[in-house]
């Protein structure tokens, strides 16, 4: 069985790489067909007209798309994503710093979404039908439909402008280096509170609503009634029987959500001036920085594939019967 799983996972990884390659090729063609050119910024009254031509030549932009694609394929198989036109650095070096931040920020947000939604569901379960349960359902619906830019600006207005408790943006203060280590850590922490709330709110609402519904469904099933009849405590039933069953459908959604988060959170990054993948990707698109756009897309695609794979593995861990689904 283990060998079969291994072969199946390997197959899945290979197909994923093919998908990612096709994605990169699609973006390669799409961005070149889009209007605008990377050398547009070199056309200016202050600059020589020859400069734009020279730059285009050095980036092979004067060659036909097919020739450029051949270069691209050759490079991609040697792990070279090219040089960013704007940063004049290898794409991977540019992406690295932004991705590390996004990885940290997205993981933290994801963790918060999971933990908070779990606790809220627990509270709401124990107070089922009560005012807290009803309020939580309503609040989570409001959070789900509130656009993140509205929530973000609202939080900044309340906590930064009116109460002056938290900083408005950035990941650290300009006096960060003058602080002691403990203060530096807290400096990071206080800077990330509002962005994390903004980014996590909708996710918490989604997880909460899914989990709450799932629990309600399982709660009325006959095996739960049976357990209760056998004298199991409510706490025991909830932790050992309801949650493991209710969490299964949530894992797939969690995989997708985490994959999206790892691709960048543009709105939150812009409002709070965070150096994440979302801003990098959008800036690269606006600047027609072709290699960087492809680099960012590849990373986002790769993350989506990995998180989905991870979600499937977690599902198997929870329920061994799902191995068959994976093998198919």
């Amino acid at each position: 069985m283990n060998k079969e799983i291994l072969i199946s996972v390997s197959k899945r990884i290979i197909t994923s790489f093919v998908v990612i390659f096709l994605l990169a090729s699609f973006i390669f063609v799409l961005i070149r067909l889009a209007p605008g050119s990377p050398t547009q910024k070199f056309i200016s009254p202050q600059l020589s007209p020859e400069l734009a031509n020279n730059v285009a030549k050095s980036f092979n932009l004067d060659k036909p798309i097919f020739t450029q694609y051949i270069y691209f394929v050759k490079n991609i198989f040697t792990g070279d994503l090219g040089i960013s036109y704007n940063y004049r650095m290898p794409v991977l070096s540019v992406v690295k710093d932004y991705f590390l931040f996004t990885l940290f920020f997205a993981s933290l947000s994801f963790l918060i979404q999971m933990i908070v939604s779990y606790f809220l569901v627990k509270i709401s379960f124990y107070k089922s039908g009560g005012i807290i349960d009803k309020s939580l359902s309503k609040i989570s619906l409001i959070l789900f439909v509130t656009p993140s830019f509205v929530l973000g600006l609202m939080l900044v207005y309340i906590f930064s402008v009116q109460l002056d408790w938290l900083p408005t943006s950035g990941i650290k203060s300009i006096y960060h280096e003058d602080f002691s280590l403990a203060n530096q850590i807290w400096d990071y922490a206080v800077h990330l509170i509002l962005p994390l709330i903004t980014l996590s709110a909708a996710g918490i609402a989604v997880f909460y609503l899914y989990l709450r519904d799932s629990i309600a469904e399982i709660y009325n099933q006959s095996f739960i009634i049976n357990l209760r009849a056998n004298g199991y405590t409510e706490k025991n039933i909830f932790n050992k029987h309801i949650i493991p069953n209710a969490i299964r459908p949530l894992v797939s959604i969690a995989g997708i959500e985490f994959g999206i988060l790892l691709g960048g959170a543009l709105i939150t990054e812009v409002i709070f001036s965070l150096p994440g993948m979302g801003r990098l990707t959008v800036d690269a698109i606006f600047n027609r920085d072709f290699p960087l756009v492809i680099g960012c897309s590849l990373i986002a695609g790769l993350m989506m594939v990995l998180t989905n794979l991870l979600a499937d593995l977690i599902k198997i861990k929870i329920d061994k019967r799902l191995v068959k689904d994976l093998l198919q």
Partner: peptide
């Protein structure tokens, strides 16, 4: 978090 953020603000 609130208390510590206030502490950091004082430091600032």
């Amino acid at each position: 978090i609130i208390i510590l953020s206030l502490l950091v603000s004082c430091k600032s």
